[in-house]
Simulated assay, not measured.
Amino acid sequence: MSDHEAGGMPSDEDLSLPKATVTKMIAELLPNEITCAKETRDLIIECCVEFIHLISSEANEICEQESKKTIAPEHIITALKRLGFESFTTEVESVLKDHKQQQKDREKKVSKLESSGLTEAELLAQQEALFAQSREKFRTAAQQ
């Protein structure tokens, strides 16, 4: 039983990335006539895990220096700069901005739901009625 399974911290052997996801990403990036050996994919996964570990450790140090208990996105960006990956920061900041916008959009949707003043059951009934109307329109159009 590994430390992780026993409730402790995961060992480096427990840390990985989904092989199918990495394989898909590699296939999307390579030209069609180029393939990637399984050993190469596994090496890429190991490199990615090591990179994440490196950035996380540095961000944790920055977080502790600031007497914070939670690693913030700004800690990651500072860690990238400190470790010599400054060229990555523009892309990371762009992804962070997009993520924050998506979060705001989700919150607006929740607020819309809440501000409708209807219960979940009432909204479900409205949805069912709309589906029924749509099915009826579809049947009518199909019969013509």
Rank of each mutant, 00 (worst) to 15 (best):
K81Y: 01
I77L: 04
E28A: 12
D105G: 05
I52N: 07
S56H: 06
K97T: 08
K19G: 07
A72K: 13
E93N: 12
E46R: 11
E28P: 07
V22N: 05
K109N: 07
S57F: 04
H75M: 03
T78L: 14
K104C: 06
L15C: 02
T119N: 03
V95K: 13
N60F: 07
S16V: 04
C63Y: 00
R135W: 02
A132N: 07
T70W: 05
S94F: 04
E50C: 10
E136Y: 08
K69H: 10
S67N: 15
V95I: 15
T35P: 02
P18W: 08
H75K: 01
A79R: 00
M9P: 08
C48Y: 03
F85K: 06
K97H: 05
R139N: 06
Q102F: 11
E13T: 14
E120N: 10
P10K: 05
F85W: 02
A142S: 15
H75I: 03
P18L: 11
A20Q: 13
G117E: 09
R82N: 09
V95N: 11
A20D: 04
I34G: 02
I34Q: 14
K68W: 04
Q127N: 15
H53R: 15
Q65M: 13
H75D: 04
Q103R: 11
E5Y: 08
L15N: 02
V110W: 05
A27H: 13
E61N: 14
E50H: 10
E28S: 14
T70K: 10
E86G: 10
P73C: 04
A132T: 08
L123F: 01
F138I: 12
L30C: 12
P10Q: 07
